[in-house]
Design a protein around this nucleic acid. Structure first.
Lengths: 238, 238
DNA sequence: CTCTATTCTCGTACACTGTACGGAATAAAG
DNA sequence: CTTTATTCCGTACAGTGTACGAGAATAGAG
């Protein structure tokens, strides 16, 4: 599968990247696989965060020399795109649309949330992704099928899907930082003291009130479901 | 204003970062200012993208040695936090709430959208930010005031604000990549060919239909307003 | 078989990154 | 003055992505 890319202006040529299965009939056989390399990178990102993923470490994990990776992806940014599409493969095992697009969309969103919680580097990676790979497209196909009963036109369906994904990514990103803050008591306490100090300056009465009477805290799951419901139920209003 | 931080576990101590105005009464006087350094970094990020912002370049821009920056921010990640809060200062010049929380919220969202379009690195930066600085808190105060008529409790108001911000960030991120693709015709054409090829494989009928009949393309502004309306109008349903 | 074209592998090298260290410069306090 | 605190910044270092090119492996042509 390895194949060098053209030095195109900026970004990666999707045709070169995603199409063409196995062309080269001559020459040395590949010792590794794109699949294995990308899977190793994903495992590292899941376990240690995206910033722990370096070309050297991925190569070592796979048992390759560093520069060998460049036969499978033209640069690191492309490797990241491959990672995003790779994990999207987990999303394809979804039931066919039921016909009730509202519940189908909610199911899709819940799938995405679980997916992003499993791969916490995803929300940030999604905000700079370029071209959808095959797994991403398969999931998009699924979402479009679920949206068929709405009667929306093509552009509108794509927008709905993009917005839904962005919504989930935003929520999960928030959820992750909340969870991280809750896990380290020092951190949370320091932040609470800081906010209390700000609220005490008299120029933030609303903030002070919120801190004084925060209300009962809901689970992240419940909050997600509530906002999701509002977003989706609002979709046919306009 | 320069002050060294403690080597705390992870992240930055918000009390050390944001509080305390001018304490040091002894020692050499600062030749630069946090304000100026952060402003230079923001200008660079706006003009050349966030990845163009390096400590060396910022220092050169300001006329300082590289290591001098570390008297004003303990590390680069903190500098980024300072940048986020710095630009949030542009948001504070908003009218007081009108009492109609729906239109107030829409106004806020439109402010945020314009803000993020002006600083395209913001959406990505927001998904990993930690502690709100004074400007961010001022804007939050404004949003909380707008939400007062809803009668929601504190935690719910915070959630609404977080979700609204995430929504805008997601939309703008999408908008920016769309605009970038449209600006370079090679890129857009290659992507279109790629998608057409995928749609032609017969296993993506919904995608094929969308590509064949995309519907009339709306302006980004109109799409934003439409989704925003749906989101906000749905807020009192649940 | 040999020859040649093609492809993959990867050691070395380079420019560039964030930042630890420590000494020199400066300013106030004792 | 000396002492202490603070800022400035040159140097150095470990770590990054990746360009280059020499060598190894494979397939077809003769």
């Amino acid at each position: 599968m390895p194949h060098d890319e053209r030095p195109g202006a900026a970004g990666v040529d999707p045709e070169q990247l995603w199409l063409r299965p196995t062309e080269p009939r001559r020459g040395r056989k590949p010792s590794f696989s794109r699949e294995g390399i990308v899977a190793a990178a994903v495992a590292m990102a899941d376990a240690e965060g995206i910033e722990a993923v370096t070309m050297r470490r991925v190569a070592a994990q796979v048992g390759a020399g560093v520069m060998s990776l460049y036969s499978y992806a033209p640069d690191k940014e492309t490797l990241l795109e491959l990672m995003v599409d790779h994990v999207s493969g987990e999303l394809t095992a979804a039931d066919p649309p039921s016909g009730d697009w509202r519940t189908d969309l909610k199911t899709i969103a819940h799938l995405q949330r679980a997916h992003m919680l499993r791969h916490p580097w995803l929300p940030a990676a999604l905000s700079t992704r370029r071209v959808p790979g095959p797994n991403t497209l398969a999931f998009l196909e699924h979402a479009l099928a679920a949206l068929r009963p709405t009667g929306l036109d093509g552009a509108a369906k794509l927008e709905v899907f993009a917005q839904l994904t962005a919504f989930v990514a935003g929520h999960v990103a928030h959820e992750i930082t909340q969870a991280a803050a809750a896990r380290s008591p020092d951190r949370g306490a320091a932040e609470a003291r800081y906010l209390a100090a700000v609220a005490a300056d008299g120029r933030h009465p609303e903030l002070a009130e919120v801190l004084a009477a925060p209300g009962r805290p809901l689970t992240a799951e419940a909050t997600f479901a509530r906002f999701l419901g509002r977003l989706i139920d609002g979709l046919d209003a306009g």
